[in-house]
Design a protein around this nucleic acid. Structure first.
Length: 433
DNA sequence: TCTGGGGTCCTAGGACCC
DNA sequence: TCTGGGGTCCTAGGACCC
């Protein structure tokens, strides 16, 4: 048996912990550059604001409906997440942290009433951290996910499901008739692993609800669609196909990409951005004790504009796998040189480290150049990471990122377009819990 | 013009997730 | 004017080999 514990409207809930006056108001948290909504309070959802809705399209709701928009503060959310996760872990013997606001808990061997136990954990998270959660329980991860959706929907929209399923829903505790009623009331597209495309195809085939989907023959699903959907159907039928991932493996790719606050045309400005992305990615790869075999850099114009479009990427193999910032930045800039073309309004760029492999010391030595000793290099990288961690990202950068200092043209953090609606955590005179 | 059979590896692209 | 960022898995098809 599995449980899924999921924070409600997570980023918004985090902000509300420190600003209770936001309770009851429609609130959204905006992405980088205040580009679009990445979290919405229930009140904001009720206004019809979609996930990912561009700010400029919903901006009018600030005046019309009292919508409050906040710039994202990911450091805060990460911190709140850690606290929530450590309490959620108390639900069972093993936990898989699936995302910043969700974790699966293995419930095998847990005695007693699972629903009661879940309500207690939920209350503890609410009291100690301040985040409201939904908890779903089922015999497979897909069913636990579904149960979680039901628990949250039952709370948010009374009447759709039986009231007793609000906040905590254990599908295994329902009788067959109740379960079928719940499945029949849920669209197939709500199932974990069924996205927009598959959902459309299912509908065309007359499969509308979860009940319809789970009645399909897995073999037929495989031949008509693919193994991924087959697994989903089996999981809905109660056969576990997706195990709990106890200690997630090291990442196979690491990316650092951003949209720019406004279009960029000059190569040296993109080069600064790429240098910072590469540095950031190198930090991440060192943190997981890996090395990259290849460095990919990409640049692109905005697909939303009617401008001339251009989008290219380039993979530069490293002579030896490396996690050295200097080496990775160099490769990224080399790639950029090859793909950059004058005359376009660039909207986004990024660096990805590919072909990641475990760090091995003897290879590090081969990366050295220009007389630096291996020891010096390692010290330099460690010092950079420490400084950037202590004093904030961007405190220490390699040369080409620092040239323009405070006036980086591509910066995401330049002018807030909506100062009245964007309060950063840093600006707020509130004590941390 | 006709044109084997089988294997591996890599890449691009599609679909999904939060 | 203004549209997030970071991942995973699977498949098809091409390149290459014997």
């Amino acid at each position: 048996m599995y449980a899924l514990v999921d924070g409600n409207n997570f980023y918004v809930s985090c902000e509300r912990v420190f600003r209770p006056s936001l309770n009851g108001l429609p609130v959204v948290v905006l992405s980088n550059n205040d580009g679009c909504a990445i979290a919405r309070s229930n009140e904001a959802k009720a206004l019809g604001i979609a996930m990912g809705a561009p700010w400029f399209q919903i901006k009018h709701l600030a005046e019309d409906a009292g919508l409050v928009a906040l710039s994202a503060n990911f450091a805060l959310y990460g911190d709140m997440s850690d606290r929530m996760m450590s309490l959620a872990a108390g639900l069972g013997p093993a936990q898989e942290i699936y995302s910043i606001d969700e974790s699966f808990i293995d419930l095998s061997g847990v005695k007693g009433d699972l629903v009661e136990r879940s309500h207690k954990i939920r209350a503890r998270i609410l009291q100690w951290v301040g985040i409201p959660c939904g908890i779903g329980i089922g015999p497979t991860k897909t069913l636990a996910k579904l149960a979680n959706h039901i628990a949250k929907t039952a709370e948010r929209k009374p009447g759709v499901y039986p009231d007793k399923l609000s906040q905590v829903c254990n599908l295994a505790a329902l009788d067959q008739a109740e379960r079928d009623a719940v499945y029949a009331a849920t669209a197939a597209g709500e199932v974990w692993g069924v996205g927009r495309q598959i959902s459309k195809q299912l509908q065309a085939g007359g499969i509308h609800t979860v009940l319809d989907l789970m009645k399909l023959d897995p073999a037929t699903v495989r031949s008509k669609w693919n193994v991924v959907l087959e697994r989903t159907v089996r999981e809905l039928q109660g056969t576990p196909c997706i195990d709990l991932d106890h200690s997630p493996a090291a990442k196979k790719e690491i990316a650092c990409t951003r949209s720019f606050g406004r279009p960029i045309t000059e190569q040296h400005h993109i080069a600064e951005a790429v240098t910072e992305f590469a540095s950031r990615a190198a930090e991440k790869v060192r943190k997981q004790h890996s090395q990259a075999g290849q460095v990919l850099v990409f640049i692109r114009t905005s697909p939303f504009r009617k401008d001339a479009q251009y989008s290219r990427s380039m993979v530069t193999p490293l002579r030896h796998p490396s996690a050295d910032t200097t080496c990775i930045v160099k490769a990224a800039l080399q790639g950029l040189n090859h793909i950059f073309k004058q005359g376009f309004n660039y909207a986004k760029a990024g660096v990805m480290l590919l072909d990641l492999q475990p760090d091995t010391n003897q290879q590090a030595e081969l990366d050295l150049e220009d007389g630096d000793s291996e020891e010096d290099r390692t010290k330099l990288m460690t010092a950079m990471d420490t400084l950037n961690q202590r004093f904030g990202k961007g405190t220490v950068l390699t040369a080409s990122a620092g040239l323009d200092g405070m006036r980086r043209e591509w910066s995401m953090k330049q002018l807030r377009r909506t100062p009245a609606y964007t309060t950063r955590w840093d600006d707020m005179p509130v004590a941390r819990a």
